[in-house]
Design a protein around this nucleic acid. Structure first.
Lengths: 164, 164
DNA sequence: GTCTATAATTTGATAGAC
DNA sequence: GTCTATCAAATTATAGAC
């Protein structure tokens, strides 16, 4: 994966987390990276493919960060909480797959499937760590909900108050 | 408010709850209602105004439904749960203000303010009913989160499993 | 109030030179 | 790999006839 391709994924991730799938464009991403939109198409042929690649990378990195937190001695629920919090407070943005999921019925198939996988994989990881399926889904729902309300009210501190 | 204006609000609400603010267009709404897009502009001059009107009506109706549930003898938390559940299961769609809030940073000012008001008013109502501010925000966050995860996985039954 | 027509811009995507 | 140039379609919005 080239530096430019990575920079495109970075820019697209930032924009999708702010505005959702239908809220980002090739020209915006291109301007952010410092190339022309045709160059973005060279790396990612369609918008659907680009967004799906962004979601896949996000899910992988998220799982990796949770795994690292676990190795550092945190309990599963604590690990997830920490990584969600970092995504919101450090970046000042929604969870990518939460932002996508809110408009799931409008997503192209590849993108919808990748957004689904984020939640399926989250549940799977938590179940492997000893939680029931219901507990796992409850945890993810509570973290996403805390993020959504914090985003709605424009105050990241609300995340701590609600999910803390 | 004319019948056509109401039909426009209905169509716009359906579409925003599926696709968010940037995912709906005047021509789609017009086609749904059976008029031309210029007629939609006659009733609502801009997209921002239309979406803000949809959000205001949604918040008012939601508060009314919660109030009705309360008069029927349900506890505050139960009332909110019931109305959220109905919004998801009967309509098969996200909460309008949840769908808007996910892309809050991309919303025009009027619309962002109306989406905020949904949550502010929700907290206010629950605090008046005896909950602490934190409990009130937690409840709204849990209901929105349950909806989001159910929407992501395309299975409304998950709402009951997670928020039940 | 609704229509036709259209302006002005943006969109995703492609062709072809370099 | 990136560019210029362009296409076809969609977008929000307006002007003016009826």
């Amino acid at each position: 994966m080239s530096d430019i391709a990575n920079a495109i994924l970075d820019a697209a991730e930032r924009r999708i987390r702010e505005a959702g799938y239908s809220g980002f464009s090739f020209r915006e991403i291109a301007a952010d990276v410092g190339v022309k939109s045709s160059s973005v198409h060279y790396h990612f042929p369609t918008k659907e493919r680009l967004a799906a690649a962004v979601a896949r990378r996000y899910t992988d990195r998220f799982a990796e960060a949770v795994s690292e937190a676990g190795k550092a001695g945190l309990a599963p629920a604590e690990s997830w909480h920490r990584v969600f919090r970092k995504a919101l407070v450090e970046d000042g943005r929604m969870c990518l797959c939460g932002a996508l999921a809110a408009a799931a019925k409008d997503l192209p198939e590849e993108v919808r499937i990748e957004a689904q996988r984020f939640f399926q994989r989250g549940v799977e990881t938590l179940v492997n760590a000893g939680l029931s399926q219901r507990e796992a889904m409850k945890l993810l729902a509570n973290l996403e909900g805390a993020m959504l309300v914090a985003n709605a009210l424009g105050d990241t501190a609300i995340f701590d108050e609600v999910a803390g």
